[in-house]
Design a binder for these strands. Structure first.
Lengths: 239, 239
DNA sequence: AACCACGCTGTGGTCAGACCACGCGATCGC
DNA sequence: GCGATCGCGTGGTCTGACCACAGCGTGGTT
C-alpha cells in the first residue's frame, strides 16, 4: 500500500489566511461571540505581526461569509462587529455558481421543493395560533387589490420564509430564503412573466395555509408541491 | 400607506464592491465562464480605475465564495482562474455560523437527514449498475480489517457523498457534503467517540446499499434515517 | 445655566510605490 | 542537441500616507 514518500508539500499559507484562521478559532472556542467588536485594523495588524492590507483582506473574507460587518466613524457602531446571518452570503454563493453553471436552475428549484415540503410538514405539526395569524396576515396582504408586482414578490418571499421559520430549524429557514432569492434573482434577470396570473398563486397560498390550519402535514406538503410546480412548470421532467 | 419620505440612506459603495459587482456581472451575462482567466491584478486595477489593493480585496471575496483560485508564478496555471466548486465555501460559512450560535448542531443534523433521505430515494430510483459498483467498492473498503478511524471517516464521507451525487442534483450533493463536513469538523473538535463501534455503522451502510440495489426508495430512506439516528442519537427529540 | 457649533480623535476606505518569491519560457553556453 | 541560466510577469506583502465619516468633548454664545 506504500507507494513511497508521496508527501504533500507544504500548503502555501498566505498572511490573510492565517488572520482568518485565528479569528475563526476565537469564534469556535467561544472567545469571540456574536455582537463582539474586533480590535481596529491597525491594532490587529500590530498584534498579529502582519500589515494592515493583510488584515483587511481577512476582513473582506469574513465579511463575505456574513460573519461580520464593518462600519466607519467612531462610537459603539463603528468598527468590525461580529454579527450577521448566513443568508445573504449563501444567496451570493449560490447565485455565482449558478452563473458559472456549476448548478442548474432546476437543481435549485428541486432542492427548494424538497426543503419546503419538509418545512411545511413541520409547520403544520406545531404552528401556534400566533404563527397562523402571521401567515394569515401575509396572505391577506397579498389579496389586497392594489399590490404591485414587486410587492407581490416581496410578500411571497415573506410567506415562504415564514413557513420555513415555523419549522423550528433555523438552518432550513436560511437555506429556504437563499434558494428563493437565488431563483428570484435569476428569473427576474430573464422575464417577469407571472403578470396578472397571480390569482392561481394566491389560491395556492390559501390552500397551503388551510392545510396548516387543519394540522394536516401531508396535505400541506402536497399543496406546496403543487404550488411550486405551478410557479416553475419546467422542473421535474426528465429526471 | 405613505409615511413620508422615509428614504433609505445611500448605500455606501466601496471600491472593491464595485469590482466584485462587475466581475459578477461578467459571470452572469456569460462573458466570463468557468475556466477563464482574469486579467492580472495590475491590469484590472488600471482598467477599472481603482488601486491594486481594492482589486485584491475583491479577489479575496470571490475566492472566499469559491468562485476563483489564485496562483502565483507564470504560465497557464498562473493568475486568477474562474473555477472551483461551492462546497468548501459553504462548509466554511456553515461552520462559522455554527460557532456563532446562529445555528444549532441539531439543525444541521436534521437538515442532513432531510436532504439525504430525499437523495437516497432518488438514488434508489435510477442508480445505474456502475453507480452501484461504486457504492459497493466503498462499502467493501470500509469492511477491510485494518481501516483507521480517520480512513473510516473519510470513506464514510465518500459513501454519503456518492449517494447524494447519485440523486442527479448537483446542488443537493454540494449541500450534503457541506453539512457532513460541518458536523464532522464540529464533532471531531469534541470527542471521537465512535471507537470500535463501527460495526453497527457498517451494517447500516450495507442495509442502505441493499435497499438501493433492491430499487426500494422507501426502504432506502428508512435505512438512512436509522443510520443517522444511530450516529447522532441526541437529535430529533423535543421538537 | 442651557445650548449649540466647532474641532479633535479614532474608525474604516483608498491609494501609490516598492520589494519579494515563485515558476514558466526563452536564451545562452557547452 | 541539450541543459543550466536569466528574464519577466504573476500574485503576495509591506510601508506610509491621505481621505471621509461619525461620535464626543470643549468652547463660546445666548
Amino acid at each position: 500500500m506504500n507507494d513511497g514518500p508521496d508527501w504533500r508539500p507544504v500548503k502555501r499559507v498566505r498572511a490573510f489566511e492565517e488572520v482568518v484562521a485565528q479569528i475563526e478559532e476565537q469564534i469556535s472556542t467561544g472567545r469571540l461571540r456574536a455582537g463582539d467588536k474586533l480590535p481596529g485594523e491597525r491594532a490587529l495588524a500590530a498584534a498579529l505581526g502582519v500589515s494592515r492590507p493583510s488584515v483587511r483582506e481577512a476582513m473582506r473574507v469574513l465579511e463575505a461569509m456574513g460573519v461580520l460587518v464593518a462600519n466607519t466613524g467612531s462610537g459603539p457602531e463603528a468598527g468590525a462587529i461580529l454579527a450577521g446571518s448566513a443568508g445573504p452570503a449563501l444567496t451570493g454563493v449560490l447565485g455565482l455558481h449558478l452563473g458559472l453553471a456549476n448548478f442548474a436552475v432546476d437543481d435549485v428549484v428541486e432542492t427548494r421543493l424538497l426543503i419546503e415540503s419538509w418545512a411545511v410538514e413541520a409547520a403544520a405539526r406545531h404552528a401556534s395560533e400566533a404563527d397562523l395569524d402571521r401567515l394569515r396576515a401575509i396572505v391577506a396582504a397579498m389579496d389586497a387589490p392594489d399590490v404591485s408586482a414587486e410587492q407581490f414578490n416581496e410578500q411571497d418571499t415573506e410567506f415562504h420564509t415564514a413557513i420555513a421559520e415555523l419549522s423550528g430549524n433555523a438552518l432550513v429557514a436560511t437555506f429556504m430564503r437563499a434558494l428563493r432569492d437565488t431563483v428570484r434573482r435569476h428569473q427576474q434577470r430573464a422575464v417577469v412573466e407571472l403578470g396578472s396570473n397571480t390569482e392561481a398563486l394566491r389560491a395556492d397560498h390559501r390552500a397551503i395555509l388551510a392545510a396548516i390550519e387543519a394540522r394536516d402535514p401531508h396535505a400541506a406538503a402536497e399543496a406546496v408541491a403543487a404550488h411550486l410546480r405551478r410557479a416553475y412548470p419546467r422542473v421535474g421532467r426528465g429526471r
